[in-house]
Write a protein that binds this DNA or RNA. Structure first.
Length: 225
DNA sequence: TAGTGATCATTT
DNA sequence: AAATGATCACTA
């Protein structure tokens, strides 16, 4: 398969992948034990716990900055919750919609930057499986194919155009083939935003998400090999 | 039951 | 306040 990214630091990248591969087959409590982490009974008050656990276990720096988990390598780590049939259970959060200037090129966008290189780590996520006993799957180091990039780009351009025209409130999650814009955390808070007519309007925080059909395709394309 | 809209915790 | 890590829960 042709990957559109440039290979710059394959050695270190392969080291991260190799490290992640060693977690495949382990349960979450086995990884948590190595870090001396307690396993929560449920994820209601611990959303993001699985992602933080695996990032930490892989040696990524915990950060809330809008940059990849491994800044030097440009690798983003994403856990992928799986249903019993091994298909993605949830859409995947990518990044927030910038609050300021939206007049950027696709190649300069947060979405492009985030998805350029992703280490996907599938994890069992059916509710009947206790958190501690959920198993980690084989990781996949991925970059979008040219075809995938084309669709992501057109989704992004359509959504960004609406947002930049002051039509943020008209954007719905139904738009976008692979990429959608949805409300995100901090939704009780609002901020002031300049609308098309030059007046300030109140708006809620939004974020870009990848639809399950897309992450499902990523998984299946790798299982072919 | 898939998908949308709502929500939780933490860090800087 | 706004970014990270996402999952919850209702409804069509």
């Amino acid at each position: 398969m042709f990957l559109s990214h440039e290979i710059t630091d394959l050695t270190d990248e392969q080291e991260v992948l190799a490290k992640a591969q060693k977690f495949a087959g382990l349960t979450l409590d086995e990884v948590a034990a190595r870090l001396n982490w307690a396993v929560p009974k449920n994820l209601y008050h611990a959303r993001g716990w699985v992602g933080n656990l695996l990032e930490t276990a892989l040696g990524a720096k915990a950060s809330t900055r809008p940059i990849p988990d491994f800044p030097q390598l440009g690798i983003e780590i994403k856990t992928l919750p799986l249903k019993q049939n091994s298909q993605p259970k949830e859409s995947t959060f990518v990044c927030t919609l910038p609050l300021g200037d939206l007049n950027t090129l696709w190649e300069q966008s947060r979405v492009y930057y985030k998805l350029n290189r992703v280490l996907w780590i599938p994890v069992e996520a059916e509710n009947y499986i206790p958190i501690s006993k959920r198993r980690i799957g084989m990781p996949l180091l991925w970059s979008p194919t040219l075809k995938q990039q084309e669709i992501l780009k057109s989704d992004w351009e359509e959504l960004i155009e609406m947002a930049s025209l002051g039509k943020l409130s008209e954007i719905t999650s139904h738009q976008g083939v692979y990429l959608q814009i949805r409300p995100t955390a901090n939704n009780r808070a609002s901020y002031k935003k300049m609308s098309e007519d030059g007046n300030y309007i109140s708006a809620c925080y939004k974020g870009f998400y990848l639809r399950c059909i897309f992450t499902r395709a990523i998984l299946s394309s790798y299982y072919m090999y």
